[in-house]
Design a protein around this nucleic acid. Structure first.
Lengths: 116, 116
DNA sequence: CGGCAATGATACGCTTCCGAAATAAATTTG
DNA sequence: CAAATTTATTTCGGAAGCGTATCATTGCCG
């Protein structure tokens, strides 16, 4: 049983989630920010500024700024790496985990309402 | 055959699309902008500023500004309604249609690569 | 030790975006 | 026709984002 989507379904799914997120969302994250957040929460640590910048093919200030805003929203946190003080390790937070979980639920709910 | 997603799959799907869009995307649209764009392209016209503002539960200047930037990207166009000159009708463009179509394809491609 | 590389943050000028309020134009209503 | 309503835009001060370039700190290695 693989995940099959027709074009109309895929776009409708995305629209539904974007609509709900835009309506009540505190965040209004961009594609970049969303990619950063989900990468932190879905891929294995450790996550560093450099690593995320390479992963996303963007410059380091982009990551720094995204971490600033997401940090203010308590979605992620930063800690200096004790083993190499140049590094900053990006850690997950309880709030961030809840946000991501709720986001996943929203996608699933939208998918379930798609016309067949 | 309904569209079923498990939490991990849903989030991985979103991450994959967001990653690709962030990597090579010219736009880096926010949730709001994405919702506006997809609503214009998926729902039946006519679309007006007021209508979109109500649909998204945001203020009108938000729509005006989004149309400014998306218009600059040629993703949508604006035309005065000849039957009521107060209204602005938002129309689809060729570029926008191609963008949305390509976006749908990207979602489908990501969905197809999801682990089962 | 001393120079060099690597890492993350910051500065700069600019663009975009925000919400709230004010404005401009067109239509409807009394 | 004048007044009130509707629609979209503009303005305001302020926040946040961008890319490029530069800094400060840390580690590495000869």
């Amino acid at each position: 049983m693989s995940v099959h989507l027709r074009p109309g379904q895929a776009l409708k799914l995305w629209q539904g989630v974007a609509l709900k997120e835009a309506e009540e969302g505190k965040a209004d994250l961009s594609f970049r920010q969303t990619a950063i957040l989900l990468t932190i929460y879905l891929e294995a640590p450790p996550h560093t500024v450099r690593g995320l910048a390479d992963r996303l093919n963007v410059t380091k200030p982009v990551i720094t700024r995204a971490l600033d805003t997401m940090g203010a929203l308590k979605l992620v946190s930063r800690h200096r790496d004790p083993r190499d003080l140049r590094n900053v390790l990006i850690k997950r937070t309880l709030e961030g985990a809840l946000y991501v979980e709720r986001f996943g639920d929203r996608i699933i709910a939208e998918a379930g309402e798609l016309p067949l």
